[in-house]
Design a protein around this nucleic acid. Structure first.
Lengths: 126, 126
DNA sequence: CTGAATCCCTGCCGATACTG
DNA sequence: CAGTATCGGCAGGGATTCAG
């Protein structure tokens, strides 16, 4: 995030997965659930793009209009990243000029509570 | 952030703060609660260090022993970062050679649920 | 033991220009 | 409209060495 990479392995969370080996890794591991999530959100502008998508579907130019300081290149990078991790679905619409609609997948929508959690901690610690 | 940086402004979360202006920023802002949290966790190894501290207090060398591939330089960087954001308290112990104990602050302990949330999303989307 | 100082390498991201 | 190509700056982080 910022930043750069992340790490893995985190406290035996709840009774459900106390002995998950991924919670005891000695080094950052991409298979760690915490890493997976932070990897999905990683990079400047990423959470802002997700926020806008949570508000509804958007085309490439609509996203660019709402986030004017975000360059085309980075926006394309972020959307490709989010598609790769299964958070966003890309939908090419018929007609000319070409328009593309980006929608959150169901998996993407479940990022809402995660962002809420991040918001809450930051808001409580201003 | 992983990254690198992060972004700010996220959906009107709950009835409590629907009109928070930080949820409508057009660019990444350090004052955004989501940014604050991701900034605290930013950087490779950071969440692993927090995980170890959640398991109890540790000295510099103890943390290095549990995370053998983590270099002294980066460990010192991470601890300084966590102290800066108020997540960790540094405590110099008397005696020789110098030993230092790092403890999570109360604020740091509240990162538990946040990491849990990150874990849950990643675990549900493997 | 607990760091700080240095060097270097890599990857992010911004700006610009160009294409289908 | 929706991107790709290219370049350059800069910060992150690993290895090594040195200091209090």
């Amino acid at each position: 995030m910022a930043h750069r990479t992340v790490s893995c392995g985190h406290r035996s969370p709840r009774p459900g997965l106390p002995d998950d080996p991924r919670a005891r890794t000695a080094a950052p591991m991409p298979s760690c659930p915490v890493e997976i999530t932070l990897h999905a959100l990683r990079g400047r502008w990423t959470t802002l793009v997700v926020r806008e998508l949570l508000r509804g579907s958007h085309t490439f130019s609509e996203l660019g209009a709402v986030l004017p300081e975000l360059s085309d290149k980075v926006l394309a990078e972020r959307l490709r990243q989010l598609v790769e991790v299964g958070v966003v679905r890309r939908e090419r619409l018929p007609g000319w000029p070409t328009t593309v609609r980006y929608r959150l997948t169901e998996r993407g929508r479940t990022l809402g509570p995660v962002l809420q959690s991040l918001w809450d901690w930051g808001a409580a610690n201003t």
